[in-house]
Design a binder for these strands. Structure first.
Lengths: 213, 213
DNA sequence: ACATGCGTGTTACTTGTGGTAACACCGAGT
DNA sequence: ACTCGGTGTTACCACAAGTAACACGCATGT
């Protein structure tokens, strides 16, 4: 039968694809974002053209790879965001989840943020969308949660999106810096960021004798 | 005389270096961060080895190039941060300055954020410091201003650094997203981000009938 | 006047990486 | 037996980073 054969082959192709992705995963975990197609093929025990048949080009492979991790991370974040606790606790749990993830597997996180930026695209000005898809997806996700649950008046939708991307960026940049310098324990970073979101910057007093801020 | 000769040559070398940087600038402005050394050399009317003699390697050229723009942008930001106005106005002015800059020359900004990520470094784990130097410098700069002027109690230094990097990341990610989608005028984005920093997220009420946030 | 450097420039090469074409094998259906 | 679709290979191309090795101009010391 055509259909059973088709599904059989498709099933085996899918399994192969997953195996290849796992091999690629190991290489990226070891070599970071500059893992070469040759290295990935070697790790998988095959040669380049097979990779290209499965994923089209490097961008395709990287996209497939990124999607897995992105989905996994987003699931964790959603769980933290949906926990039964008050707002502040949930914000802190979300921050902590993200930071734990990047702390546990920095190479993967690095890869997710830096998707090789190939795709010099068609013509000079493809400005925008250069940012990592993970950041965008996290931003949109957070925007949705905020927009759904908070009463922000008219333009609430818009405001929620700005905040979603802004908060994600804050989390990302602070996490990146923290991971490099390790200036404090994770819990302290989480607390400081939550304080920032809770308006402590605006509420803080000027230093006595200073020029004010 | 040895010294006058030295200075003469040095002067001419410096001029040449500046010319090369300007040529590189034009190419990057046109081609974005994936500008090739060949293209830059051609634009400057010379060939590759000269570039390599002047800048060592691609990273060196890019670093020199980035430093110019980074310095310029940081000067603008400092000016906005030091303007004679109240805190909120200055925060908004700073945000607006940054957003204007990336809006005016997206290719340059893109290049600054994505310094080619070469430098696969020595050994697998050079985690951290992968982020663009511009972001780090802006973060440190802002941290210094905050730490200098705000009374944040003990650990104020630490808190200021976290906030500096966090705010810069917020600005960056939101700006990046905004530049790609242009969902609203710049002024509105600035206002929304300032609202976020002013704690409107924490203060907002839950939507009626929703699960709360 | 002549040789010695030294900075500027070149051509031509090596190495590595993304990507592809052409061919070989193998198992299932007609 | 014979084709067909999928898996795999070797061998290649294009192109970018980076590096010799060599050639010219020009001030200087003898």
């Amino acid at each position: 039968m055509n259909t059973t054969q088709r599904t059989d082959q498709q099933r085996s192709a899918d399994r192969r694809r997953r195996e290849l992705l796992e091999a690629a995963d190991r290489v990226v975990l070891r070599d970071g974002p500059q893992a070469s197609m040759n290295a990935i093929a070697a790790e998988a025990g095959i040669t380049k053209p097979i990779l290209y048949r499965h994923f089209g080009d490097k961008g395709g492979l990287y996209a497939a790879l990124a999607e897995r991790h992105t989905d996994a991370l987003l699931d964790s974040l959603r769980a933290a965001l949906d926990a039964p606790a008050d707002r502040r606790e949930r914000v802190e749990a979300t921050l902590d989840t993200y930071l734990s993830a990047i702390e546990a597997r920095p190479q993967v996180y690095r890869f997710l943020m830096h998707p090789a930026e190939e795709s010099q695209s068609d013509q000079g000005f493809d400005v925008g969308k250069h940012s990592a898809p993970l950041l965008r997806r996290m931003g949109e996700e957070l925007a949705q949660v905020i927009g759904e649950r908070l009463d922000l008046g008219p333009d609430g939708r818009q405001l929620a999106r700005v905040w979603g991307h802004g908060i994600v960026g804050m989390m990302h940049a602070a996490g990146d810096w923290w991971l490099g310098e390790r200036p404090c324990p994770r819990a302290e970073l989480v607390h400081s960021l939550a304080d920032l979101l809770w308006g402590r910057l605006a509420a803080a007093g000027d230093k006595v004798g200073g020029p004010g801020f």
